[in-house]
Amino acid sequence: MVDHSIKGKTVLIAGGGKNLGALVARDLAEQGAKAIAVHYNSAGAAAETEATVAAIRAAGAEAVAFQADLTPAGAMEKLFADTIAAIGRPDIAINTVGKVLKKPFVEISEDEYDAMTAVNSKTAFFFLKEAGKHLNDNGKICTLVTSLLGAYTPFYAAYAGTKAPVEHFTRAASKEFGARGISVTAIGPGPMDTPFFYPAEAADAQAYHKFAAALSAFTKTGLTDIADIVPWIRMLVSDGWWMTGQTILVNGGYTTK
């Protein structure tokens, strides 16, 4: 019988140095993961990543950190190779990498579009590719997308539009990797109370988002609390393995499909 628990498993988290990725890393360590590789993008996140690594080790798991811009496919190949060299082949691979842009459609430049595509679509594609090549059998893959995939709204064409392909990448990968017992999912939180949210939204939009979800009154800020997303990711990469090929919107009633 296959063991789908987190205990004793090896984990790779892209974007795992801070915010939601860091909270997931700490949680999986507390759940008994054997070793966790944490990726972070910029030198500015080094201190927070070091704190995350320290917390993982304090919970009893081995931890390593790697810095990289993952938009080149070769960088993704190296991340998986470095992870395997340091802690072994992963059982669980989680990608929280993303880039937000809120801007009218007609004002989005080619450079902005290319940057959004590189981070939100290309990185996700090659993360799934490398995970499919290197994960142990019966592994779990989860990618962070956005609840805006279920929204009818202006100004997020470049953000939600470049996250949208991940929904099909997830379906295709789940079908192809399923013969090895690997489940593949995507999870779409609502607007989250993180430093990424506030610079992208004017005061009026912030106020709207804080009351937009059906359950907004029951959170600290009205936004999605990253602590409420962690149990869903934990479930999907463990006992929730039978859920595969799906994109799940977890947002307190912010949007539905």
Rank of each mutant, 00 (worst) to 15 (best):
V53C: 00
A186R: 00
T123R: 00
N95W: 00
G188R: 02
K175F: 01
S238N: 05
A22M: 03
P165D: 00
A59D: 01
Y40C: 13
A35S: 12
D69S: 01
P231Q: 01
V145H: 02
V184F: 04
S216L: 00
E48W: 04
A22R: 14
A172R: 01
A55C: 02
L223V: 03
I94M: 14
A45T: 12
R234E: 07
T221R: 06
D82M: 02
F126S: 12
A73K: 14
K7E: 12
K210T: 08
L28R: 03
A54K: 14
I13H: 09
A205C: 07
T247L: 00
K18R: 15
A58P: 06
A118E: 11
D82V: 01
A213M: 05
E201A: 14
K257W: 14
I56P: 10
A37R: 01
V119D: 14
V38E: 06
V2Q: 06
S121K: 11
P90L: 03
L135G: 12
H168T: 09
K175N: 10
G98R: 11
T146Q: 07
A51D: 12
S238D: 05
L70D: 06
A43K: 15
E107D: 15
A172C: 14
Q31D: 06
N41A: 08
T10S: 11
S174N: 07
A179Y: 04
T247N: 05
A207G: 07
A227Y: 09
